[in-house]
Design a protein around this nucleic acid. Structure first.
Lengths: 203, 203
DNA sequence: GTCTATAGCTGGATAGAC
DNA sequence: GTCTATCCAGCTATAGAC
């Protein structure tokens, strides 16, 4: 908050963050170099250091911006009429997962990023557990036997694992895994139905 | 097989592969440069190219060597008197998982590695399913409802996800997840017992 | 097989003009 | 705020002596 509004709102700054994201998704985090990111953003390469200081700071800022948007979206996901289906679908979304995987890979070599991801993950998980507990109680699930947190980790962990393997072109036993999970979700809240698109703050 | 035995058996070559592995585990794949890996191996940096040609080939060879050993080990895991417990324990082993995660991260930027990992993953999965099917049949599990492949992906996927989060210092809801899985395994093959250490080819 | 030396490239970061 | 120019470091790979 000590940072000036002017600096945060700069179009060049935003362009650099956007370019960093899209480079990460399309060519991996290693493609995000001062020269390439500034070229992709259409600004001069000196501006990277003017706005962010170091590459570490650029990455951290890109992750923070993503996290805020993502948490906003999460707050609405479990308001879906079929929250378990919505959660599952969101977990299976490859596009939003690709950049997360890049950040995770990046974190192995940038400690500052590692801390950001850890903090975000904890917050995200806690928020999900809170909402999911309410949902499962409504379905009459025995939460002693099947705690919301455990089901959440099982489902989202498996979803991410599936996405990871799929990004390698590995699909062995994926169909039956998806079938089992969707059968169990269906047993709790019926077949997935299609609703009117909900209004959302996220773009 | 066209390669000469002499070249494959060279002590320098093996030292380079060993050094590459340990550098990956301790400092990440980015630390595996021609200079550092040769220094760690105690050999001249020119030898990297003499033995492997390019860095890509060194990584591919390191992964192949690991894979062969790993598949050998796998063939024995499900011979444990409590194969589900053994599988779960192996999946939860952080040390052998660390290097796998590095290879996965590396694969994002080295296509040759990506292919190697995909091929290995398929083979590994198929072998596991084959053995696990026999085991579950023995326990009278309804394989129509709970296919071996699905259970395998659920358990190993969750295990890897837990390890990934733990490497970031994130532990939210891990305990209850582990408890649920171990309760279900216990329901099938009882409490985990301790056996005499089995003879194993792997070091 | 092992070594040195070096070419050629790409990157992060800074200084200073405008 | 934006730009150019430049320094310095680290990397892969190769040539060639021993």
């Amino acid at each position: 908050m000590a940072r000036s509004r002017d600096l945060d709102d700069s179009a060049s700054r935003a362009a650099l963050l956007d370019a960093a994201e899209s480079l990460m998704v399309e060519h991996g985090y290693a493609a995000v170099t001062t020269r390439r990111v500034s070229k992709a953003a259409g600004v001069n390469n000196g501006l990277v250091h003017y706005y962010f200081g170091t590459m570490d700071d650029l990455f951290a800022e890109a992750f923070r911006r993503r996290s805020e948007r993502s948490l906003d979206r999460l707050r609405h996901v479990l308001d879906d009429p079929q929250p378990l289906w919505a959660l599952w679908e969101q977990s299976r979304d490859a596009s939003s997962n690709a950049i997360v995987m890049e950040f995770i890979a990046l974190a192995n070599h940038r400690k500052a990023i590692k801390k950001e991801i850890a903090a975000y993950s904890r917050q995200h998980r806690r928020l999900q557990i809170e909402r999911l507990t309410t949902v499962l109680e409504g379905y009459g699930v025995d939460l002693e036997r099947w705690p919301a947190g455990a089901l959440l980790v099982l489902v989202t962990g498996t979803a991410r694992f599936l996405l990871l393997e799929e990004s390698f072109g590995v699909h062995v036993a994926h169909d039956e895994t998806v079938a089992v999970i969707e059968r169990e979700i269906g047993a709790l809240e019926g077949e997935r139905r299609v609703y009117e698109r909900r209004a959302s703050a996220a773009s």
